[in-house]
């Protein structure tokens, strides 16, 4: 395993992603989700909205890192807010 060169932050990141996936699966078993149309032009399920917000979170982070000098926690906050908006109204 040593060749994988683990670091604490990246380990935390992947544990976080795994927890989200397990949580979403559990949520889906407890109360299956029905696709609906929000402010996106297509019908989305909960899983779709999660994917959209995670992918856009990645690009939000890249944008802030590449073109500004601000702390990483600012794009992180923006991404969390965006995630909540998408999950609620997307």
């Amino acid at each position: 395993m040593s060749w994988m060169a683990w670091t604490t932050p990246s380990a935390l990141f992947f544990i976080g992603i795994a927890c989200i996936l397990i949580g979403m699966t559990y949520w889906e078993i407890v109360s299956p989700c029905i696709a609906r149309k929000g402010f996106f032009p297509i019908e989305t399920t909960r899983g779709d909205r999660l994917f959209i917000s995670l992918l856009s979170a990645a690009f939000i982070h890249l944008g802030f890192i590449g073109f500004t000098e601000v702390t990483i926690w600012l794009p992180f906050t923006v991404a969390i807010i965006w995630l909540l908006i998408v999950m609620k109204w997307g």
Binding site: M4, T7, F13
Partner: peptide, 9 residues
Amino acid sequence: MTVVNYSLQ
């Protein structure tokens, strides 16, 4: 996952 680890170090 390994690539992500590499990219931070």
